[in-house]
Amino acid sequence: MTGPSRRVGTPLFLERGVYRRRRLIDAAKLLPFLAMALFLIPAWLSSGNDGAPGQTSAHLIYFFAAWLLLIAVALWLSHALHRSEGADTSEEDTPPVGPAE
């Protein structure tokens, strides 16, 4: 094998637009993990074993605020990804290893 193959004509560094798009994709991939943290951790914190029970109304506000925040981020990401669509023709999940970061 010749190692991770670099496609003919791929430059060593990506141009700015493509770079931005790659980072947007990274953000889109990270978003669900942020969401998991926001949605699941309070269940531990409020579980009755070692602390006082949580207040339903406060958590209600918390959950909807977090939810709205995540939706806003997703909205922004969706639009930004849509705008940058022409920048990178490669729709690969993982960009070629090695060059172009």
């Binding site: 269940a43 409020s46 579980s47 949580g54 339903t56 958590h59 506000i61």
Partner: peptide, 21 residues
């Protein structure tokens, strides 16, 4: 409404993490 919630039978939130997850 929040006050009504606070006064309701479900005012306290004490989830089982396993069930929640």
């Amino acid at each position: 409404t929040l006050q009504i919630i606070a006064a309701s039978p479900v005012a306290e939130w004490q989830p089982q993490p396993s069930r929640w997850i």
